[in-house]
Amino acid sequence: MKFTFFVSFLLLVTCFATFGQEEQSRKVKKHSSAVVEKGLIKVSVMYPFEEGKTFDMAYYETKHMPMVVGFLGSNLVKYTIEKGLASGIPNTPLPFMAIGTFYVKSLSDYQAAIGPNRDAIRSDFPNYTNISPVIFVSEVVR
C-alpha cells in the first residue's frame, strides 16, 4: 500500500514537473517568435511632431505604405506602422506623430528598390502629410 502510494506520488510530481517545463518552453518559443532576426536592416521613417503639421494615418496605412511595400518585394521581412501617443516624459510634446518601419534582409537591395521609385514615394507625401520625415537606417543587434 505504501509502495503504491509512493509510486503514484512520484508519477504525479513528474507529471507536474513535465507540464511546467513544457509550458515554460511554449512561453519562450512564443516570445522568441516575436523577436525580429538579428542582422536584419531596419529602416525607420519618422515624422516629427510640430504644431500646425498634419498626418492622415488612414491614407498612410491604406495607400502610402502598401505602395512602398510593393517596391520592396521579397527583400521585405515585415513592416510596422506606429501612431504617436505621448512623450516618454510627462507634459512634454510628442516627439513623433508617426513612424513607419521596414525590416529588410539587404540594405543594398532596399536601396536598389527605393532609388528608382524615390520620386513616386516623395510625390505621395502631400496626400497624407506636410511633414518632412527623418529616416534612420540601422542593423538589428538583438
Rank of each mutant, 00 (worst) to 15 (best):
P116I: 03
S33W: 10
K53Y: 05
C15P: 08
Y47S: 12
V69H: 08
A113N: 02
T54Q: 14
F55E: 01
S44K: 14
L12K: 11
K27S: 09
P116C: 05
T101I: 07
V7E: 12
I89G: 04
F5V: 13
P93V: 13
P48C: 09
S87E: 03
D109Q: 13
A112S: 07
V141D: 03
S74V: 08
D119N: 08
E50M: 06
D109A: 13
V77C: 01
D56A: 10
Y128R: 06
E61G: 00
T14L: 15
F49C: 08
C15S: 15
E82L: 09
P90Y: 06
A17C: 12
I135H: 02
M97V: 09
C15A: 15
P133E: 04
P90T: 11
E82D: 13
S8H: 07
V13Q: 12
T54K: 15
Y47I: 06
V43C: 11
M1V: 09
I41Y: 09
S74H: 04
M65R: 12
P133M: 08
G115N: 11
L11R: 02
G88P: 03
K83Q: 07
F5N: 05
G115C: 00
T80A: 08
Y60L: 09
F19Q: 07
C15Q: 15
S32N: 14
R122E: 11
A58K: 12
F136W: 06
I41A: 08
K78V: 01
I114E: 00
P93C: 08
A17H: 05
Q24P: 00
A120F: 08
V141A: 05
G84N: 03
L76A: 06
Y60I: 01
F71C: 04
K38W: 01
N117W: 09
G84C: 08
F3Q: 14
F19E: 06
K42Q: 10
K63T: 14
V7Y: 12
G52I: 10
F96G: 02
R26Q: 15
V69D: 09
T4S: 15
G115Q: 10
Y59A: 01
D56Q: 04
L11A: 02
E139R: 12
F3E: 15
T101S: 13
S106F: 06
D119G: 03
C15F: 15
R26C: 11
F71M: 13
F49D: 10
Y110M: 04
K29S: 12
K42L: 07
L85P: 11
Y128Q: 10
N117K: 12
F5R: 08
E61N: 02
K105V: 04
F102E: 03
T129H: 00
S74E: 12
T62A: 10
M97I: 02
F16D: 00
A86C: 07
M97A: 12
Y60T: 03
V137C: 06
K42A: 03
A112K: 05
G52S: 10
S138Y: 02
D124Y: 07
F6D: 10
S8I: 11
A98T: 01
E82G: 15
A86W: 05
I114G: 00
T101K: 09
E37Q: 14
F71P: 05
D119H: 02
G52C: 11
N127W: 04
A17T: 07
